[in-house]
């Protein structure tokens, strides 16, 4: 259930999006990926998930080189929740979650009662069971995000890759989703914007700046006032939270 990257890089045409990323994410770990807009977080997640071939370096899942594994083999281990899933098809939530069973079926293997149970359980966990017959087009942003998470859970992955899964969610659902993901028996890599949520729910954090990994470690070591100032260009005070003991970031905004 480990994810390792060695000198990983990816370029779009001539533009280097990220380079030299070496990471070792342990089994069962919840790993947060932070960085400003355009720092390469989404692209890094795509290469780690095997959706883009690396331009340099390599990714290993459980020690096996990713580039040598067929897509279906990867999809049985790794589920991806993208930040903008769109479709014009009038597909229902139930049908979206059923897609998660795709990698577990061959060309002609039949849909079984076990598949139905897995899909129902995934919808329960992501809190979309009550929306199951609702078509995609009339879901709110948050409901879509949770439907995609339910689909990812229906894949029964050992690794979960989430690109800003808390986008569009109200604060209650942001906390519920991260709480759920961080307690699942999976190795997860999550791109996030909210430093406090990352500090609270991630075991370790990696910070990308202009395509390079500039920090990596437990939240208390990584989320320092100096790093926030240099990477995000924002003054902040960081102190341990009285509730959970992890770092809490307070931004020093100009007085109103």
């Amino acid at each position: 259930m480990t994810i390792e990257t060695h000198g990983l890089g990816w370029s779009a045409g001539r533009k280097t999006i990220f380079q030299g990323v070496s990471l070792r994410i342990m089994a069962g770990e919840t790993f947060g990926l932070l960085g400003p807009n355009g720092s390469g977080k989404s692209s890094l997640l795509r290469v780690i998930a095997g959706l883009r071939p690396a331009s340099a370096g390599r990714v290993a899942l459980d020690g096996e080189d990713l580039s040598r594994q067929p897509a279906r083999h990867i999809a049985r281990k790794v589920a991806v929740v993208d930040q903008h899933a769109t479709t014009e098809t009038a597909i229902t939530v139930n049908e979206v979650v059923r897609l998660g069973r795709t990698p577990h079926h061959g060309l002609l293997s039949p849909w079984t009662a076990a598949d139905d149970r897995i899909v129902a359980a995934a919808m329960e966990r992501a809190d979309v069971a009550h929306l199951k017959d609702r078509p995609w087009q009339i879901l709110s942003g948050g409901e879509r995000q949770r439907a995609q998470l339910a689909r990812a859970l229906a894949q029964q992955p050992t690794h979960l890759i989430l690109d800003e899964p808390t986008n569009h969610l109200d604060i209650q659902h942001q906390i519920e989703i991260l709480d759920l993901v961080s307690t699942l028996p999976v190795t997860s890599v999550i791109a996030l914007h909210d430093l406090n949520l990352a500090a609270r729910f991630c075991d370790r954090i990696g910070v990308l700046q202009a395509g390079r990994l500039v920090a990596c470690g437990p939240p208390a070591e990584v989320l320092t006032e100096a790093l926030i100032a240099s990477v995000f260009g924002t003054a902040a005070q960081v102190a341990p939270s009285p509730h959970h003991g992890r770092p809490h970031v307070q931004y020093l905004m100009p007085e109103a």
Binding site: H73, D82, V96
Partner: peptide, 11 residues
């Protein structure tokens, strides 16, 4: 349904 990347991610 959700595009080529989503299809690839489903194996």
């Amino acid at each position: 349904t959700f595009g080529e990347d989503a299809a690839r991610a489903l194996g």
